[in-house]
Computed example of a mutant assay.
Amino acid sequence: MDIFVCIKQVPGTSEVEVDEKTGVLKRDGVDSKMNPYDLYAVEAAIRMKEDKGGEVTVLSMGPPQAAEIIRESYMMGADKGALFTDRKFAGADVLATSYTLAQGIKKLGNPDLIICGKMTTDGDTAQVGPEIAEFLNIPHVANVKKILEIKEDSIVLEMDMPHTVEVVDVKLPCLIAVDKDIYQPRLPSFKRKLATKDREIPFYSLKDLDDHDEMKYGLNGSPTQVKKIFPPKTNTDHEIWEGTGGELSERLFDKLKELKFI
């Protein structure tokens, strides 16, 4: 089974500056890590490979330092990786990101299955996986909490809906977006680190893709623009009240009225 996993490098801290002109995060010099949801996706792919055989390829779009998370995937058990990196990809919204990754998948081959994490912790949109599937014209299933069965030409999944849990049988090739706790991600292996330290991580830029239209990538290809973004204000002001239950409840009522909560 040929499995592709889309992963992303995200800031390892909430203390990230924002470019006021573009509305995007300033990632240079910020400690980064693999998106936590993508760890579940990588684990799911490796377990499927161990069960059914095949190969796991991880791919990401980002700056050159994003190769670190591909290297981490190698240490977990992934077989191949690729990084799509180009300044013309920078500032992409979910649509441009999805299009770039879809073009990258076409560049690398025709997988039986594509796995994504449910969402990223720096965006929380949960849109990239389904949009990749739409660009590739393949079925997709989001919010996957269990992989029940892998058949010859389909996969049976349990998906967590808002009010129900549904079981679906989806034809391959398809894309699935897995939720957290589908499996417990394994730790990177030091033995695999030594074994894969010289394994290649190919870099691809816009000129390597079939579609070279710059208006479909990065900020140029992003129909949604962030108008304003700012870190939340912190307020540590507090008061300590003492008194009887009746006195405190009356004071709390007066305070809520003062703040116009009631």
Rank of each mutant, 00 (worst) to 15 (best):
residue 162 P to V: 02
residue 229 I to D: 05
residue 67 A to V: 03
residue 255 K to P: 04
residue 221 G to L: 01
residue 167 V to Y: 00
residue 80 K to V: 01
residue 17 E to I: 00
residue 199 R to T: 12
residue 95 L to P: 11
residue 67 A to P: 01
residue 121 T to G: 02
residue 234 T to Y: 11
residue 249 S to L: 14
residue 225 Q to L: 06
residue 167 V to K: 10
residue 115 I to T: 09
residue 88 K to H: 06
residue 66 A to W: 02
residue 218 G to A: 01
residue 57 T to M: 04
residue 28 D to Y: 07
residue 204 Y to I: 03
residue 121 T to M: 12
residue 6 C to K: 06
residue 231 P to M: 07
residue 114 I to A: 05
residue 48 M to P: 11
residue 256 L to T: 10
residue 3 I to N: 14
residue 225 Q to N: 04
residue 85 T to M: 01
residue 130 P to Q: 07
residue 42 V to D: 01
residue 55 E to G: 09
residue 215 M to G: 04
residue 234 T to P: 12
residue 157 L to D: 13
residue 237 D to A: 04
residue 10 V to T: 10
residue 85 T to V: 01
residue 114 I to F: 03
residue 176 I to E: 10
residue 173 P to N: 11
residue 99 Y to R: 01
residue 248 L to C: 15
residue 49 K to S: 14
residue 6 C to W: 05
residue 121 T to N: 13
residue 137 N to F: 12
residue 212 H to C: 08
residue 218 G to D: 03
residue 81 G to A: 08
residue 162 P to Y: 05
residue 76 M to D: 11
residue 179 D to V: 10
residue 246 G to H: 13
residue 214 E to I: 06
residue 198 D to Y: 07
residue 107 K to W: 06
residue 32 S to H: 09
residue 230 F to T: 10
residue 46 I to G: 07
residue 30 V to N: 00
